[in-house]
Simulated scan of single mutants.
Amino acid sequence: MSNLATLPKNGGLANKNTASNFPLLSTWFDDFSLNDFPSLFSSNFNTGITLPKVNIKEVSDAFIVEMAVPGLKKSDFNINLENNILSISAELKEENEEKNKGYTRREFGYSSFKRTFTLPETVNDSKINANYSEGILLVHLPKKEEAKQKPSRTIQIS
């Protein structure tokens, strides 16, 4: 959570009722910390995959996106490019059913994520490729020929 404004404790926003022995409403909220309930107030209620971490690096002829997403299969991913926006998503649905004497236990699971990236104009979008190995999704975004970094060279003085 972000603190955009600082309010004085017990101040200005609550009316004081001197005839009452109850604490002011503002003091009740001062003592109540949302940090005591981080999973309730900061969670996106997704019990499966969290938003995966991404490394993006630039090399002389390409940009490389590395995404850590262990435990998935290649077929779980959906990678799209539309109007220079690259989106990477995955969706998993799982259903387990166990039948024993007199009862049936069924468990359902659903997990998903989506990350989007605005690509620079220098990316050659017709040559983008992706590879998934050992829990790392690697997306190779080659640069257009005119945007590639040229190797340095020595210029002779005449």
Rank of each mutant, 00 (worst) to 15 (best):
I49D: 02
D31Q: 15
L13W: 11
L25S: 14
T47M: 09
P38N: 06
A14N: 14
G102V: 02
P52G: 09
S43P: 01
T18W: 06
L24A: 13
N35H: 10
K53I: 07
I85F: 03
P70R: 03
V54M: 08
N10K: 08
V65H: 04
E82Y: 13
G11T: 07
Y110G: 11
N21A: 10
S43E: 03
V54D: 00
S89V: 00
F77Y: 04
I49S: 07
N78M: 12
S43V: 03
Y110T: 11
I64E: 06
S26I: 09
I88P: 01
S26Y: 00
L86Y: 00
F32N: 13
K53P: 02
K93V: 10
F22V: 12
I79F: 00
I64K: 02
K53E: 13
N78D: 14
N44V: 07
K74N: 12
W28K: 15
L92C: 02
I56Y: 01
L51C: 03
G109S: 11
T27F: 05
F113I: 07
T104M: 08
L40T: 14
K74G: 08
A62P: 00
N46I: 04
E95H: 12
S42N: 10
F77W: 03
G102I: 02
G102T: 02
S26P: 04
N46T: 08
A62V: 05
K16N: 12
D76S: 10
L34Q: 10
T18M: 09
L72F: 05
D76N: 13
F41I: 05
I49P: 02
F63E: 04
T47I: 13
N15F: 10
N83P: 06
D76F: 01
N21K: 15
N100S: 14
G71D: 04
N15R: 15
I56L: 09
L34H: 10
P8N: 09
N80W: 07
Y103K: 12
P38Y: 01
A90Y: 01
S89W: 00
L86P: 00
E66V: 03
N83S: 15
T18S: 10
I85E: 12
L81C: 02
F22W: 07
N100I: 11
V54H: 01
T47L: 12
T104Y: 01
N55F: 08
L40P: 00
S87L: 01
T50E: 14
